[in-house]
Design a protein around this nucleic acid. Sequence first.
RNA 1: GGAGAGGUUCCCGAGUGGCUAAAGGGAGCAGACUGUAAAUCUGCCGUCUUCGACUUCGGUGGUUCGAAUCCACCCCUCUCCA
Length: 369
Amino acid sequence: MFEYEVIKNAKGTKARTGKLQTPHGEIKTPVFMPVGTQATVKAVLPRDLDEAGAQIVLSNTYHLYMRPGADLVEEAGGLHSFMGWHKPILTDSGGFQVFSLKGMRKISDDGVRFQSHIDGSYHMFTPESATHTQQQLGADIIMAFDECSPYPCEHDKTMQAMERTHRWIERCIKAKTRHDQALFGIIQGGMHDDLRRQSAEFISNLDLPGVAVGGLSVGEPKHLMNDMLDIISPILPGDKPHYLMGVGSLDCLVEGVHRGIDMFDCVLPTRTGRMGTAVTKRGRLVLRNATYARDFSPIDEDCDCYTCKNFSRAYLRHLIKAGEILAAQLITLHNIRCTIRFMDEIQEAIEQDRFNEFRDYFWRNWHEK
RNA sequence: GGAGAGGUUCCCGAGUGGCUAAAGGGAGCAGACUGUAAAUCUGCCGUCUUCGACUUCGGUGGUUCGAAUCCACCCCUCUCCA
């Protein structure tokens, strides 16, 4: 039901292409997964997502548990049919909310007690319950319930979180009863070399179909994230997919692929799109800014998305300034297409054994600080 | 012709003697955003090179140590009655 196969290992880099077989179809890697936290990629129709080349989307256990409830989704026939997306889905366990809803939760060895951000009610999440909920939701890939350390975080505290994450993954494995879902473990360890190494070894040695890297891109400088990936990448099992969680700016994507990452997810393209910022291969374009008021060219001349084929920067800026919902839709669509197409180009470069040239070329054109 | 109300910084709109370069909102400008509490949040928003200095509240004079705020006249809007 779930299989991963490496297609090509590029030379002079850890970059590789591969194929992931899931119950809802095949995924070619390296892949970018748009985020649809609440069973919807904000501002995008599933139809357009499909057309933009999305192979898989990510959704969120914590949010769907809180609303509308996992029972309801199950009753609807699972997440795929509930949200009308029939390609693969990955659900995050709610582990990230342990980090992001910092003020509204309490961690113990048993699990995490959350106070709902919606109505303030209290809810207990444990490795068992997170796994159970994800089974109800029915995604193709489900994630371990982990504790994501913030940045910065002392060695001691990071170690405790990492060890807890390790204990919890074993409980997730035990709790898992469905065989058509793939459970990925998550490496933690913050920005501490020894912990990262230790966690990478621990998670890699588990009998699981995929390995994820969590706790990165949480506010640390980018070079630190790359350092951590450098430490981890020799340890990661070559025959399993490597998933870097929460990373999605183009510069980070190339560098991640270069370090052997196969899967990425990120809210950046969708969130910044809604805020009026467009993603391009040269760096971001803050369309809201006055410079674009009379710029009648598309976001990117070379982009094949619906937005770029039909609308100018000036028009998009107008929509943003006017508070029109279409602005969010059009820019998000472009950002997703741009990011996905970027991954397609990466795949092509790897297959043609010119990934390093691709990477050099990318950095020569990248203007973001 | 008569009776009222009012003119405040780009706009709306508070402010009735010092704490006022002047509340609040809007607009404008900029920044942030990376397993989504986000169609969000933050900053700037009279001029000058910062501490600070300077010029502002329809106009002109005046009262006062001190005025957007009080007085006089003038200009202009709006409402009601003839």
